Computed example of a mutant assay.
Amino acid sequence: MIRFPLIILVSLLAHALTKAQEPFTLKGTIDTTENAIYYFYYEVGDSGITDTVRLKKGGAFEISGYIEEPSRLFVSIEDKYNPRVVGDFIVYQGWLEPGKEHIFKGFRDWQKGWDNFEISDSKTDSLSREWSKLSVLEDKEEITRAQSRFIEEHLGSYYVLQVLYGKLRNDEDLTRVRDLLSRIPAHLQSTFKYKKSLDMLAVKDNISIGSVFPDFEQADTSSNMQRLSDIRKNKFILVDFWASWCGPCRAENPHLVKAYNQYHEKGFDIIGVSLDKDRDEWIQAIHDDKQVWHHVSDLKGFDNEVAKSLYIRSIPSNFLLDPTGKIIARDIRGEELTRLLGEILN
């Protein structure tokens, strides 16, 4: 067996750690007024970091940070332009890579899409631009074929891993995504994105039609803990993810009220899981919409523990369960719930 002196091993380890922790740098200019304030947000695992930057003379700026894998970059300003936008107004979106020194140039016309900025030395950003160009092809089938070719040709890239992650979040072609994830090369299998994708795929399997919906517990409007398995005993139950601030959710509520009033006495119930943050607004919406069924929330918005565990990132979203807890339908809209319950309970 070959033995290395301890001092050499320590030196090698220190070198490896230094290399792994080498920061990225992003510097350049944005074509706008001096002293303008921009917010640079980049993803780190399940969260992210925001650097607030005041542009210098000539629109110059520089930021640096540590990322372990390619990270999406969002550059935004205070929103004074679009009243429909919640939060800051995003003007540039790109990709950073670990240990790279990126040169950035942001142009004044934000409406140009990918052409409104340049970022150097980012293979991931270059692939994202190639992918975005596929969506403007004229024929839908041509788009599908082109995207499939792209995925196969770049299966060893981090960006394709991001594409597959996005498909999982949108419940797109899970069988195909499962196959592609099984073929992801070894150098990407240690990334957060790959592990997160596998976890999401497992969760998607657990909330597919025919699966037993995972049990959960949260506080009701009186701060008492309510457990799904206690509520659904011997009932068909709709688990409805919604929020007071969600317009489409509120538009669906009259249909839920109708179904509840018509079939509650025959063995149907609802538990609403709110993605609200404001307790008063949540309770007021329940009252205004005449939702007399069960309601729970941890008042964490989209960080609601139940919603996060099921990767629910858009609402309204719902699941219809039979008395054993098995999922028999999901994302039911309009009169479909009343019709379906009529077939089951009449």
Results as ranks from 00 to 15, higher is better:
L6D: 12
I7Q: 12
S11V: 03
L12C: 04
A14E: 04
K19A: 12
K19C: 05
Q21W: 08
F24V: 02
G28A: 15
T32H: 12
I37Q: 09
F40P: 14
R54W: 03
R54F: 04
L55V: 04
L55T: 06
K57W: 02
S64E: 12
G65S: 11
E68G: 15
E78V: 10
Y81H: 11
N82Q: 10
P83V: 11
P83C: 06
V86G: 01
L96E: 00
E97G: 05
F107V: 05
R108K: 15
D109W: 10
W110R: 12
Q111W: 03
K112F: 06
D115H: 05
F117I: 07
S128H: 08
E130P: 06
K133W: 07
E138T: 14
A146M: 10
Q147K: 13
F150I: 06
Y158L: 02
Y158S: 00
V160F: 06
Q162F: 14
L164N: 10
L164Y: 09
Y165K: 12
G166N: 14
S182H: 06
A186M: 10
S190R: 09
S190A: 11
T191W: 06
K195Q: 07
K195F: 02
K196D: 02
K196R: 15
S197T: 03
D199V: 01
M200D: 00
A202V: 09
S208K: 02
S208E: 01
I209D: 03
I209S: 01
G210P: 08
F213N: 00
P214A: 10
D215K: 03
E217I: 05
Q218T: 00
R227C: 08
R232L: 15
K233W: 03
W242D: 01
S244A: 13
W245D: 12
A251D: 09
N253Q: 07
I270H: 08
S274C: 05
D280Q: 12
E281N: 14
W282A: 02
I283H: 04
Q284N: 14
V292H: 11
V296K: 12
D298Q: 11
L299H: 04
K300S: 13
G301N: 12
G301H: 04
E305Y: 10
V306G: 01
L310W: 00
Y311G: 00
Y311N: 10
I315P: 01
N318H: 05
N318I: 00
T324A: 13
I327K: 11
I328H: 07
D331M: 05
I332M: 07
R333F: 07
